[in-house]
Design a protein around this nucleic acid. Structure first.
Lengths: 340, 340
DNA sequence: GCTGGCACTCGTTTGCTGGGAGTGCCAAGC
DNA sequence: GCTTGGCACTCCCAGCAAACGAGTGCCAGC
């Protein structure tokens, strides 16, 4: 049976182990935390905790180390989210308010998150799939070369070059611009890309050739899900703080290069709900020694992407969870503002 | 005196040490390279090389290790650039030809370079400062909110939101668009930003308020040198291959987070001239154990940015130099094509 | 049910030693 | 005069044993 005091002991073990990176023994425990009982009692509790699988002893005469299950219990039952200090809050808001565009927001956030948590931070770029087309602009660069620019509701701008076989008159371009905007404005990009398919025949049949070229590139730009797969990473240097190079650092360092892996790690967590995946709970056996703290972000509960931190299972969960939630909220707020 | 055979010995030492990561002795040397002389002779040569400071002995009864000075001589005198294999060439061109825009080129290049060299690759985003304005587009999103879009000669697109105090009529916006383009089209961005200063009074005095707002944001977008400071990094996981965590890996890992440091490392190397900076030759004493191989890129010898690889002094210089040069050439070519 | 005492376990540190890799030097040979 | 084989010497390192000590489990007493 795991009663309150045993939970206290578990919490103390987790905290000490996170702080010292060394197995923690009964004596050190009662010295550093005022548990109000003697080492012998703590030892009895530890024996039970070990039997239940929450802690583990590397070898006979060593202290105890939390298991993944122990961390899990710690996170579920014990972690009171440390609130951010006002200084930290101010740092977040001033930094992110200074961002000039969406990419800037992402890059600043990821940097910030890694600095706040002293861990490796990951921020997924906002997905485009749920955004709507705000405006399409066509610009003639030369008579046979135009640039199409798609402005999305999230504030993101996609641009593509179009090469034409024959010159296109400005008047025709203007007409095409009107037609395209009429067809796509306010429509979700996937639907907008589909809607464009009907245009070539509907507008100026004699210009169908041009229309088809422009519309083709436009549709491609709108169905480009490149962004859905992009992530920004920061703070790899924080891994250097950890020992255990081969089991903890190296696999993670390798994973950081594989953005697909990172996306899977981030998962699809809901907005405002912080998810913690501990060690083996994650999808990769090589990353059994790393934990992930993530949450979704997006204006008004619309999930646009995920962000979070990764690090060794032995990480500061309460601090990481608080920072992840705080940053996600600010990012959501900024996306909300840009959206009006 | 350093004659030809001693150079051969030095080369052999460098090659073996790079391959094995271990001090190399005279016996192993004659076995693995057909130098045509006995170990004793090689020892005599090594004694001279050591006296001259090209190699170093960690301790008595150990093999020799090249010094920074030794690598320098190796690079200057001995390294014949390995040509890229045709498979590698094809990989480069197919990958980079598939890039859809400038950022994509940069991201694909850096990835590619790190894979080719199995080192950490760094690519600076092309600087905007030398590019000219190709077109400025103004788009009304709501009556009091507009988006300004600047298309540059390099193909880069900058966008900014403008908030207006009072509604702006479409006709006025159109007129402003014409005026702005007349003032800036084909002009280098710095000059264009300056030229915009005169606009508010010259065009429609009664619209000066609006003009000033739009022009202000435009000028800001044009003088935004954010891009000059941006770099893409890839291949940090390759550091894991190296031992010597504290002296070689950790400082570099930390440097990778500091883009300012990376920019300084990249330096301002000329297009088509590969620069090698070995160990202490670089600007940072913490990075005394790392070397940098860089070159500039840009269409028609116009330096738009730099790219390169960093790694421990014990790196494969010929291979790295060849890969850096090859990638830079392809990037230059692509920028050139987009520029026509 | 908590506590102090105590014997026990076992990883780590320290000190030592033998083997081996590699060198420098020397005398002889081409 | 350069090259070569031989040889004594140096010094790192792997391997081992002993001492150490942190931490435990268990037990008897409160």
């Amino acid at each position: 049976m795991v009663d309150d005091r045993k939970l206290d002991v578990l919490r103390a073990i987790v905290e000490d182990y996170v702080a010292t990176e060394e197995p923690v023994g009964s004596k050190a425990l009662v010295e550093r935390h005022h548990l109000g009982v003697s080492p012998a009692t703590v030892r009895n509790d530890m024996a039970v905790l070990e039997e239940e699988g929450y802690i583990h002893q590397p070898h006979t005469s060593a202290g105890r180390v939390p298991t993944d299950k122990g961390y899990r219990l710690f996170v579920d039952k014990l972690a009171t989210l440390k609130p951010m200090s006002t200084a930290e809050r101010r740092a977040i808001s001033t930094l992110l308010d200074g961002a000039v565009d969406l990419d800037d927001v992402v890059q600043k956030s990821v940097r910030l998150l890694s600095q706040l948590t002293r861990q490796v931070a990951i921020v997924q770029y906002p997905t485009l799939s749920r955004s709507t087309v705000r405006h399409v602009e066509l610009v003639a660069l030369t008579p046979t070369r135009a640039m199409v620019i798609v402005i999305l509701s999230t504030g993101r701008v996609e641009q593509r070059l179009v090469e034409l076989d024959s010159p296109l008159a400005d008047a025709d371009l203007a007409e095409l611009r009107v037609a395209v905007n009429r067809a796509t404005s306010g429509v979700q990009i996937a639907a907008a890309a589909a809607a464009l398919g009907d245009l070539p025949d509907a507008v100026r049949p004699e210009q169908a050739e041009h229309t088809r070229a422009v519309v083709g590139v436009l549709a491609e730009a709108m169905s480009d899900h490149r962004n859905d797969e992009r992530v920004a990473v920061s703070g790899a240097a924080n891994l250097a703080r950890y020992g255990d190079f081969d089991t903890a650092v190296r696999p993670l360092l390798e994973a950081l290069e594989e953005h697909v892996v990172l996306l899977k790690l981030l998962g699809e967590s809901g907005v405002d709900a912080v998810t913690v995946r501990i060690g083996h709970e994650g999808p990769y056996s090589e990353l059994a020694a790393t934990s992930v703290v993530t949450t979704g972000y997006g204006p008004q509960e619309h999930h646009l992407g995920s962000l979070g931190v990764v690090g060794p299972t032995r990480m500061d969960y309460p601090g990481s969870m608080a920072a992840v939630r705080a940053v996600a909220r600010y990012v959501s707020r900024i996306l909300d503002e840009g959206n009006q």
